[in-house]
Design a protein around this nucleic acid. Structure first.
Lengths: 399, 399
DNA sequence: TAACTTTTTGTGGAAATCCACAAAAGACGA
DNA sequence: TCGTCTTTTGTGGATTTCCACAAAAAGTTA
């Protein structure tokens, strides 16, 4: 192992990248386990679009990560300590390259990438890369430790926010700055409800995903048994609610797709600007989850508190209804009629409301002619003595 | 006054009617002040359709009463002690006739009608009729007294119902029977809110109206300061809520039209079958009135508790909203945008919802092109990040 | 069984809605 | 001031909704 002494006098990761690049005659990039750029070689000027965007953005672009997952590259890097060859993918501007993962015990700390611009790397270079990954491990470890420490402090701070521990917003802002986080002027709180307690191996995967999705900036995160909780920055986002909705769905999708962890219920609070309201935001997100569990079908496509509509009030509505001992005369009449005449008026009105008053779709779902549906609706209005043109009255049909 | 001794040996009202009929050579009918049939002559077989229906139904048909009001006949009977001539009205099957009111002190107790089938009554007969009305007064007075007594007892009973005084339904049914009222198997409670305390002269007019509208059977009634409260029988009524709605509106209309008493807010409870629930029904009707006073425009055409729709829950909704300190992000955004760009998005969405999502009407109300409205709605959905296809979300726009 | 009502399905036409596209006017910023 | 973006209004066409009417099927009642 004589020529491996080249590692000995390299101080920084940059020098390390350059040394590897020089040996392989290839541009080299070093990333952490979340595909954040750690260092890149500069002696060799040849490169490809994917590498350029990575360097400019200080991280691998989301769509590149996506493709690498889809092609199975990242899974094999996470499974094996051997270098992996990546064939050119023109649609994302990625040239031929070789990658190897950097391991410490049973954990991946990062990756080394070597671009095969003019030459193809052989067995010897593969072995060299593997040794390089071994050697760099010690440089990455302390960084990891620092990050862990910071994460610990940030988690503690987050829980203080979630439990309304602070009295003034100034104190909160100060804490943000101490953690080198720039608090955004508006934020939301997202909660993901898992089916089981989140294991530490799942936690790593989740963090990996959160850091690679890149759609939104996550200021703070924490995990509490079956819940993943995020504090999300929303500055300069044009349609924050829409973006959030897409984000949480992407996250759930990818977690399922990449790690096989399914049945996650996502939710997020309304927008807030005052950091003293974090607990309130948390409760909003929790109530969305509670409602989604009670009415999975009705609010299937709603994730934000703001968009719950009438369901935001569902608990007080139900409470008042039971307190008043109110009987739904309209529904009762329909059921009576159904019973007596063997008709389907109850089912009809339910389907119709379900399909958002769309005669066409409702008729299709019921397997009847559109006019039959129209006729039935006329009868329902008569028998139940309800004005189906009044959205207010339709609403009460649900309860 | 010698020939007036003919009254002396007449025992019943029927004999009286026959005696008058014989003198005038006309069919004669006697009604109480609420146009209920008291007696009719039988010696003379000639008659007209209006009289036939009156005799069969034991009261003057509603549409006849209506016409008599419109033509000013009844008002003049109520104003003067002199006979009034009524010209033929073919549309309601009424032939020529003469009427006179029966007075006691300053009150009208009833009416005598004489049909001019073949002959026209002259001055002499008019004078005779007036004396007949004088003479019959004494026969009507004791009936009046009995009725007053009964009314007193029934009012007391009604208040017991309204205040949940009874423990069992049997006790209630027994009380009904004691008052010779047949309690219907389903009932509703109607309340009319007046602007001022109801005077006893107004009370008489109201009772008159209630007894002549004939649309629905009123089992019990009472008056409490500015409120008229009715217990309404709903047996064998096909569409009870619709009928009730028509009834209360008719009542308000006629009170205004005939007696000039306006600004009455009508309301009625949902349907009930258990007479232990009368107080609950009363509260339902009261809450409809309260809501109508708070949201006069929104529930303008709703009178029944059942049809309040979402407004049934308006108090708990508002309460929850203030408790949560929730800000309407969507509306806020719109207002912000309006302010900054001098646009009318807020007004637009309000009008649109007001017009029940009817693009056409809303565009007309806003004085803009339909496409302009469509464009604005698209922008509203974008800026407010709300799904306008979801009725649930639209609802929350109101608050 | 015959007469009647209720329910389903169909046809056809008027009105409304939705959507894409375009022209014009106005607002706004570099 | 020019170019760009937003807003308004318009046209045209595909689709949907609404309604009236009718015929057939099924169920109910005398």
């Amino acid at each position: 192992m004589e020529y491996d002494s080249i590692w000995d006098n390299l101080d920084s990761l940059e020098e390390f990248a350059d040394a590897v690049s020089e040996f392989l005659h290839c541009p080299v990039t070093i990333e952490d386990r979340n595909h954040r750029l750690l260092a890149y070689s500069t002696h060799d000027e040849r490169t490809d679009p994917a590498r350029i965007s990575t360097i400019i953005g200080r991280r691998v672009p989301e769509k590149v990560i996506n493709s690498l997952w889809k092609e199975g590259i990242i899974p094999s890097l996470l499974n094996s300590r051997d270098p992996v060859r990546v064939k050119k993918m023109e649609d994302i501007g990625l040239g031929d390259r070789v990658a190897v993962s950097i391991w410490h015990k049973n954990e991946v700390l990062g990756f080394i990438w070597a671009l095969e611009i003019d030459r193809v790397l052989g067995e010897e270079e593969f072995a060299f890369l593997k040794r390089a990954a071994q050697a760099i491990k010690n440089k990455l470890l302390p960084m990891q430790a620092r990050r862990d420490k910071k994460e610990e402090r940030s988690q503690e701070f987050f829980w203080k926010l979630l439990t309304s521990h602070f009295q003034t917003e100034e104190a909160i802002i100060e804490n943000f700055h101490r953690l080198q986080i720039n608090p955004s002027s508006s934020y939301a709180l997202a909660v993901f409800q898992f089916r089981e307690d989140i294991s530490s191996s799942e936690e790593k995967k989740i963090l990996y995903l959160l850091k690679t999705i890149q759609q939104l900036k996550i200021m703070l995160y924490t995990i509490d048994h079956q819940k993943l909780i995020l504090l999300i920055a929303l500055d300069h986002i044009d349609q924050p609610l829409t973006t959030l909705s897409e984000f949480v769905q992407t996250f759930v999708e990818k977690t399922e797709e990449r790690f096989g962890v399914g049945e996650i219920t996502p939710a997020f609070s309304s927008l807030h600007t005052d950091y003293l309201d974090v607990e309130r935001a948390y409760k909003e997100a929790l109530s969305v989850i509670a409602i989604k569990e009670k009415f999975p079908h009705e609010v299937k496509e709603i994730f934000g508190y703001q968009n719950l509509g009438i369901y935001r009030f569902i608990d007080v509505l139900l409470e008042k209804r039971t307190k008043d001992g109110f009987k739904n005369h309209a529904l009762e009449k329909l059921r009576e009629y159904d019973e007596k005449h063997q008709t389907n008026l109850t089912e009809t009105i339910e389907t119709f409301l379900d399909k958002d008053n769309n005669v066409h779709e409702a008729a299709k779902a019921l397997n009847v002619h559109v006019n039959t549906l129209a006729y039935r609706l006329k009868r329902i209005a008569e028998i139940g003595e309800i004005n189906l043109k009044d959205p207010n009255q339709k609403i009460t049909f649900i309860y």
